[in-house]
Each structure stands twice: as C-alpha cells, then as structure tokens.
Design a protein around this nucleic acid. Structure first.
Lengths: 239, 239
DNA sequence: GGAGGGCGGATTGTGCACAATATGGCACAT
DNA sequence: ATGTGCCATATTGTGCACAATCCGCCCTCC
C-alpha cells in the first residue's frame, strides 16, 4: 500500500488532488525563492525535481513553465531551468512599474477599503513591527512584502493585485541578488503613515507617501548594486 | 506540396526554428482572437491544432498554456480549451485596471517620448482616421487598440507594456462578446488630443483626457451589456 | 411518456522511450 | 605547457501509445 497519490486503489479517498500537487510544487519552489533558500542562478534539473516530488516530467515542466511566465525562473532551451537573475536594467524597470501600480492600488484601496480592512492592516503592521524589533529578518522581509500585497487585496481588483504580486516577487529576487544580508530599513513607520492617510480618505497624500517609500526602497537596492557578486556556486538547497 | 505556409513537408529545410514555430502558433491564435475570427467560447481541440500547424501535441499544449496564462483562452481540465469568456465582473475589473495602467503609462510616455515618437503616433493617428472614414471596421478596431499599445511602447517600460498588452487583449475579447457589431465611436479625436497634451509635456492633462476616453469606451460596452443574451445563447451552443 | 442508467465516441492526461543538444573532460598537436 | 578538437555524459525536447475522463446518445424501466 503505497502512500503515493497515483497508486490509490481506494476510490473513496478520490483523487482530485492532481491540480493540487502541481500547485504544491509551484508553492514549494516559489517559497524557497522567497526565503532565499534558492538564490538567483540556482539550477532546477527536471529529473531531480521529478524524484523529489514523486511526479513525472510532464508535471514538472508545466510548473517550470508557469514559474517562467511569472519571471521567477528562466527557461534556457536545451540547457535547463534556473532561478531568474534580474539585470540592473530590469531592476530599474521593475521599480518604475511598481511605482505606477502601487499608485493605482493606493487610490483604489482608499476608495474601497472598509474600516475592517484598515484595522486588519494595522494589526498586520503590529506583527511587522514586532518582527523588526525581534531582529527576525526572514519574518520581517516576508511581512514587509505582505503589507503591499495586503494593500493590493484591499483595492478589490484581482487583476492589478496579480500584477503587483508578480512585481513584488521579482523585487524579492532583486533583494536576494543585490542585498543578500537584508538590512532592515525601518520602513514600518512609512507603512503606518500610508495606512493612516488612506484611512483618512486622502488618496493623493497616501500616494505621495507610497512614492517616497518606494524611492527609499529602490535606493537601498541601488546602493548595494555595485558589489553584486554573482554567487553562482553552492546552491542545491532542497532536500 | 501545400501552399499553406503552416505545413512543412520539406525535411531538407531543417527544423531549428522550433521556438519560432511556437511563437507563430501563438500569434496566429492571438491575432485570430483580436480579429474576432475566433470568438469567445470557440473550442480549440488539440488534435485539430496539431494537424493544422503540423506539430505535435506537446507544442500545442505549451502554446495553449501560455494563452491560458495570458487569459486569452480557458483551460478546462479534461474538457479542452476554449477562447476565454470574460464575465461582466471581470469586465469591470479589467477597465478599472486599465485606468490605472494607462495613467501610469501616459505619465511615463510624456516623460520619455521623443519628438520622433510623437510624430510616429501622429502618423498612426492618420491611418486610424482613414480606416474610420473608409468604414473599414476591422482595420479600425485593430488600429484603435494599436494606438494604446504604441503609447505603451513610448513609455519605455517593457513590464507595464506587457501588462497593458494583456489588458488590451482582454478588452478585445470583451468587445467581441458584448459589442459584436463594433460601432465606431469616433474616438480618433480623443486619441489626437491625448497625443497633443503629451507632446506639450502636460502629463496630468493627458491623463485626464485618457481617463475620460476610457470612461467613454467602457460606457459603450456597458450600454450593450444588457442585451448580451444572444451571445450567451451562442456560448451555450458552442460549449 | 419521462427519467435514470449504461454505453460509445471523442478528447485530454500521462508515462515512456528515443533523439537532439549542450557541457565538461581528455587526448593530442604545436 | 597551452590551445584545440573530439568524445562521453547528462539533460532537455519530442513523438507515440495507452489510460482516464467527459459528453451525448440510446436503451430500458417505471
């Protein structure tokens, strides 16, 4: 009796988790990239992924293709997949795009956010604040990104939300490349002030704060960009 | 020896255009959707596509998956692919997202556009104008969309450009669904005025004009949305 | 006559085997 | 000793065959 999902003679515990396993693999790789266990340039051989997740190559290929479309991995023909390596030029474009997207999202979130939404965001800010004071860098980095995603959710537009999700993901890649130690710029206050302006209905003020916040973010990356040593060695962290 | 460019009976002219043929199939389906030769709900059986393009199912599947990621087709498990059918709610979201995106793009295009860019756009506007006066509805629809894509290109941000490309594509799907006859709202002047404001360096003015232009566009669709029932019948008939 | 169940055709999902291609090491010539 | 070309190996790309699933149809039963 194998626990392998493919070999299940039992029709009661039906197998409709086939799309689920695909999502699981995607999330695993995605989270590994976010947590910097998989750094830009890391190779992702199909065969290894197959035996690691116990699926066939067709499944792995679909997942890799989705990741490639989301610009998380790069598919090099006949040479395999690697975790994407954003170039400096792409970095500039990503931050520029993010400025435009976040402005639109702040405007919508100010219009559509309910008091519960803002209360939720404040609760989120407290977590973020605590993580920062605990010097819990991984949690803090995740929460700091989550703030922007939460804001996008409050805007009530799944399309723009998906766009920002992709952009934030790529920003995390950039941080992994150009800022591997992750110095915690104390952006908590900036987040808090943005929420405050939004709750007051001052969309333009919130947009201005967000703009400045993102400028600071980009500058932090740019400063480190000079000493970007491609650490293309010692990867393969998933076991 | 077929005159059909898609069939490649000649083995001598070796096949190293494998990434190219994939892009060609994508573009063919994409353009067909844009030209409304493929209307929402149309089925896309893998086998037929295989023999039409003379490729194997693996290739067709990759193309269909890319189209699905771009929200041009919908992949229903075990039931095949169909051209995507935007819902009214999605329509609202798409136009809302488009407002935000185009505002950002107009701002960037105003900043980054060269005199040559604007001259090019004016040339484009003349074509558009002529097509409209020729009552050449297919050309006009294509050119009207192309104006917005051209503007996105002038903004010099490939990421936002790609986002707008996806949005405009989905808008074309919506027009195909809710506005099948395609009444030519004479938006030429609106386009022209936007270019004029951008060339004058007045980003905010151009953004306001673009906003109003898009409002008109959406209202044209909304007005027709009430009597969209015949399309629903078609949807059921094809599905 | 209507409803439910079973059946056949068609289409997609998956695994496997083989071909094509790139990479790295090795031998050889200079 | 160094540069060059070739070959072995690993990895990806592709086609094929079979299994699973779904839809529409028809037959049977109530």
């Amino acid at each position: 009796m194998s626990t392998d999902a493919k070999l299940r003679p039992d029709p009661a515990a039906a197998e409709h988790d086939e799309p689920d396993v695909e999502r699981r693999i995607y999330r695993t790789i995605f989270d590994s990239v976010m947590n910097q266990r998989l750094t830009p340039g890391a190779r992702l051989p199909e065969t290894q992924l197959c035996e690691l997740f116990g699926v066939s190559r067709a499944v792995v290929r679909r997942v890799l293709q989705r990741l490639a479309h989301d610009h998380i991995v790069e598919l090099r023909p006949n040479r395999g997949a690697i975790v994407a390596i954003p170039t400096p030029e792409e970095t500039r474009q990503i931050f520029e795009a993010r400025q435009g997207l976040e402005a639109a999202l702040v405007r919508l979130a100010t219009r559509n956010g309910t008091p519960e939404d803002f209360a939720d965001m404040r609760r989120h800010l407290r977590e973020e604040h605590e993580a920062m004071h605990r010097f819990d860098q991984p949690s803090w980095a995740r929460l700091a990104s989550a703030f922007h995603l939460r804001l996008a959710a409050v805007a009530r537009n799944p399309i723009l939300e998906a766009f920002l999700n992709e952009i934030v993901t790529r920003c995390s890649l950039i941080v992994a490349l150009y800022q591997p130690w992750g110095n915690a710029s104390c952006e908590h206050d900036e987040h808090a002030r943005i929420v405050e302006r939004m709750e007051a209905g001052d969309a333009e003020g919130a947009i201005r704060l967000m703009h400045e916040h993102l400028v600071v973010l980009e500058r932090n990356v740019c400063l480190k960009r000079a000493d970007a040593e491609p650490s293309l060695k010692q990867r393969l962290g998933l076991a």
